[in-house]
């Protein structure tokens, strides 16, 4: 399923790729290829591949014996699943009420202006912007998950500086 890379991949990358297919297969067989496990399988696929390509969805549909439209329907219903590759850096702005009350919209606005709309990646592939509904760090509001780490009590100014630092134009 992931054999359509144009550039010739190295051997190590090749085995890693095989491994991913094997791991995904194992996840499906663990659920006896039941269509009910679609969300579990999509979770695994996204973990392994980073995002869900049409080929990947097609092969999952075939193995779980589900209509392809149902697989895409599920993958696009849930915000957790991404059909696009992620950026080098990721910012997830918490828009929970506590963060909202403490000015999270200003942070998001800065990111959207400089990089991309929430849920998207900047055209240069540098930054993915996302929003979340309460990341549970209300005590640190407004909070952002930057490359997997929670950063609290941010200001738009700090975000701007941060973007400058990683070279966003």
């Amino acid at each position: 399923m992931a054999t359509t890379t144009p550039s010739k991949p190295s051997k190590a990358a090749d085995t890693a790729r095989d491994n991913r297919a094997k791991l995904l297969e194992r996840a499906m067989s663990r659920h006896s290829y039941s269509g009910d496990a679609l969300i579990e399988v999509l979770h695994t696929a996204q973990e392994l591949y980073g995002f869900l390509t049409p080929d990947l969805l097609k092969s999952i549909a075939r193995k779980l014996r589900l209509p392809p439209s149902r697989v895409l329907g599920v993958a696009t219903f849930y915000h957790f699943f991404s059909l696009e590759p992620k950026g080098e850096h990721s910012y997830i702005v918490c828009l929970g009420t506590a963060c909202y009350v403490k000015g999270a919209l200003g942070l998001l606005e800065t990111l959207e202006r400089r990089c991309a709309k929430a849920g998207r990646t900047s055209p240069d592939g540098k930054v993915s912007v996302n929003s979340a509904r309460c990341i549970g760090a209300c005590g640190l509001a407004p909070a952002v998950i930057r490359d997997g780490e929670i950063v609290g009590r941010l200001t738009p100014r700090q975000v701007t500086e941060d973007l400058d630092r990683i070279g966003v134009k």
């Binding site: 009910d36 969300i39 599920v74 957790f80």
Partner: peptide, 25 residues
């Protein structure tokens, strides 16, 4: 365990059931 995938409405019990069954919530 069943892991949700980012849909608030899945807290509603019938949507939650649909989601555990692998469907749109």
């Amino acid at each position: 365990l069943r892991i949700g995938a980012g849909a608030f409405v899945c807290g509603e019990e019938t949507a939650l059931i649909a989601s555990i069954e692998g469907k749109r919530g």
